[in-house]
């Protein structure tokens, strides 16, 4: 991809106390690009993703999302505003869904557009219904999350993030909490999203998905980018021994 980057991560560092989890990661993601992040458990994949929308505060480096740039720094009112601006551009999908259990499916979708963007319930609901149709859950509109299967929950969670009309989507192991037979339906939704040109950063171990959808795979080891490249290239000919060992284990 040669389009200009919509996400720029520069020299990103994250410490938890004395433990350094991210050791200066730099990564650009272009408009419409799908990047899959790979790495062993504890390598820092979630932390990296969570630093992009500042659910974790980086301790060094810089993140830029669609022109909104923010360096690591001390909290302030102005900073909170910038973080909010970034979060409005970056939707996030979590491993364990985190749907709001006290709200129905449709209410889950319209909550943030109404409270954060001040959209009217009418227009928010209309768009929410379109999104539910897109993820194949139009008939679950008025159910509570407890009545949904894991796969359905995750599809609602994706729709909920999309309801904010984000420019990019971050996925943190979206299928890892699902029974194997429910993984496909979520991946299908994600594939369709990629086809529509959504910029996506996906942490996943689903190599089939990565191979089919990703433009680029990035392998992270102990908080550093070890190797990156197009899926075919990386899978058939990884240069780094650690990447090769990891790929052998997951393929």
């Amino acid at each position: 991809m040669t389009t200009s980057p919509v996400i720029r991560i520069e020299n990103l560092e994250k410490h938890f106390g004395r433990l350094q989890v991210l050791k200066g990661i730099s990564l650009d993601v272009g408009v419409g690009e799908v990047v899959v992040i790979l790495g062993r458990s504890g390598s820092g994949k979630s932390t990296l993703l969570r630093c992009v929308n500042f659910l974790e505060e980086p301790t060094g480096g810089c993140v830029e999302v669609d022109g909104t740039r923010l360096e690591a720094g001390a909290p302030s009112r102005a900073r909170r505003e910038r973080i909010r601006a970034i979060r409005l551009k970056a939707g996030m999908v979590f491993q364990d869904f985190n749907l709001f259990p006290h709200l129905t499916v449709i209410e889950n979708l319209v909550e943030a557009p109404c409270t954060v963007k001040g959209e009217s319930r009418g227009e928010a609901s209309k768009f929410a219904e379109e999104l539910l149709a897109k993820v194949g859950l139009a008939d679950k509109r008025d159910e509570y999350p407890i009545r949904l299967s894991g796969g359905q929950k995750q599809r609602v969670a994706i729709a909920r993030a999309l309801a904010m009309r984000p420019q990019i989507m971050l996925f943190d192991e979206p299928t890892s909490a699902l029974d194997p037979e429910l993984i496909g339906e979520v991946l299908t939704v994600m594939k369709n999203l990629a086809k529509e040109g959504m910029t996506m950063v996906v942490v996943t171990h689903e190599m089939g998905f990565a191979r089919e959808v990703a433009h680029r795979m990035v392998f992270i080891h102990e908080g550093e980018v070890v190797e990156e490249g197009p899926p075919d290239k990386l899978i058939s000919g990884a240069r780094d021994a650690r990447t090769r060992r990891f790929l052998e284990a997951v393929l």
């Binding site: 659910l55 939707g91 996030m92 709001f100 943030a112 993030a161």
Partner: peptide, 10 residues
């Protein structure tokens, strides 16, 4: 996770 999901939505 609830507060986190809400924050992520802005």
């Amino acid at each position: 996770g609830q507060a986190e999901a809400a924050s992520a939505l802005g």
